[in-house]
């Protein structure tokens, strides 16, 4: 899978930018520090959207494409935001035949986001997961680390409401 790119507006704060600029200033003398700068940037912002990679590219005097090439090479770097509430819907075979695909779609509909995306307020993010071994409870999803099983489409709004939607 190619890495998914965030399509949300960027909401960096001045404080975050100041932190990143300080990291860049401390490292710009040596382009081999690119990955280290990106790691710190991800620690500051939680992910590496275009605006952040741009700052790095300009600050380090490295083409943006190169920064992006590095970001998409290493598993650790994320181009999408993870929400405070991270929902993973199991799309393993057992869950899928039991309708987890429908639940996944319903979540996308209610949250107004696609898979591997995050709501604009940074609250909810959604992803599909492989089998988590809870086939007896199928279909299942996890919210952060909590497992919800034997779901129907109608349970979705209740779960979301529990997390403040």
């Amino acid at each position: 899978m190619q890495k998914k790119i965030s399509n949300l507006p960027f909401h960096g704060t001045a404080e975050q930018e100041a932190k990143l600029q300080a990291v860049i200033a401390a490292n710009k003398h040596d382009k081999s520090h690119l990955m280290g700068v990106m790691q710190e940037a991800q620690a500051i912002y939680g992910y590496l959207p275009m605006e952040v990679q741009n700052m790095i590219a300009e600050g380090m005097d490295i083409p943006l494409e190169k920064v992006f090439g590095v970001a998409t090479f290493y598993a650790q770097f994320s181009l999408t935001q993870k929400g405070e509430v991270h929902i993973a819907v199991c799309l393993g075979t057992a869950c899928y035949v039991k309708g987890s695909g429908v639940i996944y779609e319903e979540l996308q509909k209610q949250l107004g986001i696609g898979g591997d995306e995050c709501t604009a307020d940074g609250k909810f993010s959604l992803t599909a997961s492989r089998c988590i071994g809870a086939c007896g409870l199928a279909p299942v999803l996890t919210v952060n680390d909590e497992v919800y099983g034997r779901l129907t489409k109608d349970d979705v709004s209740g779960i979301l409401a529990k997390y403040g939607k």
Binding site: G36, V70, F77
Partner: peptide, 26 residues
């Protein structure tokens, strides 16, 4: 110390060096 970022291939010696140099670990 230089930190990897999640790429198994960087265990290969030339890829590791390419990575230390700040590139995709090829």
């Amino acid at each position: 110390i230089r930190l990897g970022a999640g790429a198994f291939v960087c265990g290969e010696e030339t890829a590791l060096m390419t990575s230390i140099e700040g590139n995709r670990g090829e």
